[in-house]
Design a protein around this nucleic acid. Structure first.
Lengths: 354, 354
DNA sequence: CTGTTAGCGCGTTCAA
DNA sequence: TTGAACGCGCTAACAG
């Protein structure tokens, strides 16, 4: 039926046991370096296994042990440098600990996210790492993991839940800093472009933005808030909205770089000078931020670190290390200023847990 | 030991068989919609399964059937819109056919690619979809798949092998068209920035470039070829190289958009006007191409389609449909001209197999 | 249309 | 230090 059918029989521990005139149990133990097996016997087992081209059967083991040594990862999209870094970090830690990753993208919809979660559940992943989609409103589709005590960790686009650790940055603070920076540059009419507000990252960034305004005696105007999907088209529309306002804004702070860049381009196409007429700020420090002119002021946080920390936290839970209680692990971020002639890092925040 | 240990016993087909006073075999058949089971029986089985919270055990099935319904995917990096699209296409087709994807990135090194291949092999994937890393020089690490008759398909960055179908675009033709376009615009001293030439995509693009020059009576100059990693830094260096040449080039055609954009920026920083002094062309139609100013002329080909076709080809092989012989499936590409005032699609090439 | 039987390859008692 | 025997949960004959 299948073109993949191999006619050659797969070699098992029985085969190598027979060849060595010992029992399969001994082979099984020898292969996993069981202390109660004589070294010489182990050597013979390994040599014979090598000779016969033996390969370990994961499924038989999973069937017995009821663990899969597999971690499920669900992300919104795989198209950013940030996500690529996150996954590389996760893969590094996981593989070192003997785990494999199953990666899938929700494409920003809760519907797909549900399917992915179901798939992972059926594949009996030992744990799950999730960054939520735009349209996700609740996490009922993850309830089965929680009920079964399967560790579930949210990273970046997180969700507060008593059983689910979060690995995030301080979005509130980052946005506060960015807004404060713009204000210090003399901006007073600052527009904020936010993503779906049911995602904590965007709600928090908005909150940080508003608080910075308030702390500087600037009233928040309803017109100064745009909520959209943070895509290229959204950035263009946002710019047009800005241009249509009675009082022209003197700055825009978008919740991601893609949108900030698209917005900047459209503003420039309409004759505004950046940063003289209007300053533009983004979030994420995507490579695109250094490509636009002028380069984009933005918030940097390293995905690799976030991936490593998330994976490490999960594996600790799997090994029974660390508490089962939810904890928010807050990683560093940097404000990267590129709208002056000088580029420099302004601040650096240490991990709150230190 | 593990925090994931569930104390509640997992429900099996035996449990639901017992509850229904039928045999486990019937349950097994009913669950997979076997035609030889009465509908009413099926209904009872499904209802009972639902009631008892049954979940299918993949491993037991894998152990029996020796198939995993899993497809391995190895890509260089997960950071481009193109790759994201490819994977979405693959996931769509695969899931429809009941397969899951295991995705991993080689991070452009053969070493990591080898590890990934080994992991996939040990996880007994039914088939593999690969786009090769920069530094890969041979495909010995895939030999075990080939020897075992496990379908292996290369896409985009392909490799010719009698047993491995390729899913690609006509890179030679695309580069030829791009170069011809530049020549028609009046360019005579065109620089080409290529990636590692052991990757067919870059070797073929170079060849198409050179052939277009030849066909238009332009001699190829050694100075006009730059080979690098096609990153941002490489684009900057390429621009500096161009500026240092005795005769200043009037065009540059890079093998990807990232590098083209970086190069363009550096040229502009050095006072050149684009496209008046120098025209810039890229490859891939990455979103970044519409962000730089002026927008980048480039080659477009849709990743989603490539992912779908690659997955479909693989699944056909797994189902014994289609020939085992290698075949190159060549998908369409489009030359997207953005260095004139008018934007338009110039040509459209149909799938060669049609 | 349904039941019986016999493994898939491995880990893990319990004995020796 | 090693072996015998059983079962993890499911599917594929073969019977009826």
């Amino acid at each position: 039926m299948s073109a993949a059918n191999n006619n050659e029989k797969e070699v098992t521990i029985y085969d190598i046991a027979a060849a060595l005139n010992i029992s399969a149990a001994t082979v099984s133990r020898g292969l996993k370096n069981h202390p109660a097996i004589r070294q010489t016997t182990k050597d013979r087992i390994f040599a014979q296994a090598e000779r016969m081209g033996y390969r370990f059967n994961t499924f038989a083991r999973n069937l017995r042990t009821k663990r899969t040594y597999t971690i499920g990862v669900i992300v919104p999209r795989l198209n950013s440098m940030f996500m690529s870094d996150v996954l590389a970090g996760m893969e590094k830690i996981s593989n070192e600990a003997g785990y494999e990753l199953i990666i899938s993208q929700s494409l920003e919809t809760m519907e797909k996210e549900k399917k992915n979660a179901a798939t992972m559940f059926n594949n009996r992943v030992d744990g799950v790492l999730v960054s939520l989609a735009y349209t996700t409103t609740d996490i009922d589709h993850f309830r089965r993991f929680i009920d079964k005590n399967i560790p579930l960790i949210f990273f970046d686009r997180a969700f507060e839940h008593p059983h689910c650790p979060n690995v995030v940055i301080d979005n509130h603070k980052a946005a506060y800093e960015m807004t404060t920076h713009l204000i210090r540059q003399g901006c007073r009419r600052i527009v904020h472009i936010a993503g779906h507000l049911n995602r904590d990252v965007y709600a928090l960034r908005l909150k940080g933005f508003q608080e910075a305004l308030a702390d500087n005696g600037i009233t928040f105007d309803e017109d100064a808030l745009i909520v959209n999907n943070l895509g290229i088209a959204d950035g263009v529309l946002a710019a047009q909205h800005m241009l249509s306002l009675p009082e022209r804004p003197d700055a825009v702070f978008a919740a991601n770089d893609t949108c900030a860049v698209a917005c900047m381009q459209e503003l420039k196409r309409n004759g505004l000078r950046v940063p003289d007429d209007v300053r533009v700020a983004g979030f994420n420090n995507d490579p695109i931020a250094t490509v636009v002119e002028p380069n984009l002021t933005t918030i940097d946080y390293r995905g690799h670190e976030m991936g490593e920390v998330a994976a490490k936290t999960l594996i600790n839970l799997l090994n029974g290390v660390g508490d089962l209680q939810a904890a928010a692990i807050v990683l560093r971020h940097h404000l990267i200023i590129r709208d002056s002639t000088q580029r420099k890092k302004l601040t650096e925040h240490e991990n709150k847990n230190n």
